[in-house]
Design a protein around this nucleic acid. Structure first.
Lengths: 218, 218
DNA sequence: GGGGACATGGGTGCCGGCACGGATGGACAC
DNA sequence: GTGTCCATCCGTGCCGGCACCCATGTCCCC
């Protein structure tokens, strides 16, 4: 085999995780980590620099989440394959990942087994989901009476996510309004919309949600 | 040098992190990972089995947090050294870690540099804190007029903790009052006292605090 | 061109969170 | 026994969260 190894960008805000993943991947002859990034913005910049076949992204990162980064990466030419590496076995994020065209979704809790496999699958343009997610997929399929590919709508918009982050960090509507340079009413509107979309009760549940999906830290 | 290597227990709920840390530590001739655990309960059980010199604990773990596990480990004979490995650069956590007698506190975001150093320091019974925490320590020392070792008292009473749990779970004062068979006013009084003691702003911060110390799950 | 999603803005009204003031009774220590 | 801590309770007042109503402008898609 004379093919060159797959060139990988690795994005995670924890140096320790990057180091561990790098050790795992570089151990494989057909995979090589050519760049690292500590947040979503760095990741996009690195891929833009070229020479990246596959981006392995953490979902929860400062400045720009993995999902936001993936949406930007998808618009690049040539667009790299994208693989999500996440702590959260969360249905919402899983479907979001599918919608931004990810090739795979790997849980950190089991990634030592699956990661290499998922990288190779991504390069071959085959989807890879961790076993637990398969159940989610099937259940979802059945719930909808087997109408197939129809994925749930994106739950929250980019703007709403901005607001969510700030709400969960404990800012009041007025503070958020000043930060985003909009009226407090609009902030409340976004927050209210999210409560309804996500089926939550108040900003406290919103906070727990944000922590669960890794948008903020406790 | 004929000394046997330091035997380490590694506890983190993410297999990927464990694998990365293991690769880093096993690469050092004087350190060897002899056991892994995916949560606090497993960690305590593993150490109880014997043969562990040093426990490297993630703070945020399911079932039992690293802090809770450390308190139990401190009661064992012989008690292992304890080193915290955490995502959170958080003052509250940091002091909690000191209080349970940790030898060190290492941030995941910089752990690839510091971890090995911190392990060796722990074995020599020297404290190790990451550079940023040093500032926190010094500031805290100065704030108290240099009275030294006096660590903050256990902040909240048992009754307050009961209330805290319910507050953090999203119950209103009235609901909590009914659950605890006291008046809503008393609930608010407890909550209010906790806010003051812990230096927090509102029930949202109270919730994040409860999640941090492992009282509830997000 | 019309329909739908999104972001933006406003008004009203209720209720709960929280700060501030006050109080009592019980447990334990010095 | 006096002092201290804790749990219990009450009133007042302000402010913010949240639900409900309304509207506008801008996209993009069919």
């Amino acid at each position: 085999m004379t093919e060159r190894p797959t060139r990988i960008l690795l994005a995670d805000d924890h140096a320790l995780v990057r180091r561990g993943v790098r050790l795992i991947l570089d151990n494989e002859p057909d995979l090589t980590v050519v760049a690292e990034a500590a947040d979503g913005a760095e990741a996009v910049a690195a891929v833009r620099g070229g020479g990246v076949d596959l981006a392995v992204l953490d979902i929860a990162m400062p400045r720009k989440t993995g999902l936001q980064a993936a949406r930007e990466l998808a618009r690049l030419r040539p667009a790299p394959r994208v693989l999500f590496l996440t702590m959260y076995d969360n249905e919402q994020y899983f479907f979001e990942a599918l919608k931004v065209g990810a090739s795979g979704y790997v849980l950190k809790s089991v990634a030592d087994r699956d990661l290499v496999q998922a990288c190779r699958a991504a390069v071959r343009d085959e989807p890879f989901v961790y076993p637990g997610a398969l159940n989610t997929l099937v259940r979802h399929y059945l719930d909808r009476g087997g109408d197939g590919g129809a994925l749930p709508e994106r739950a929250i918009t980019d703007r709403e996510e901005e607001v969510l982050k700030l709400v969960a960090e404990g800012h009041t509507s007025k503070e958020i309004a000043e930060l985003l340079v909009i009226s407090a009413k609009t902030v409340e509107r976004h927050r209210s919309n999210m409560l309804q979309k996500l089926g939550l009760k108040d900003r406290l549940e919103l906070t727990r949600y944000a922590i669960r999906v890794g948008l903020i830290e406790p």
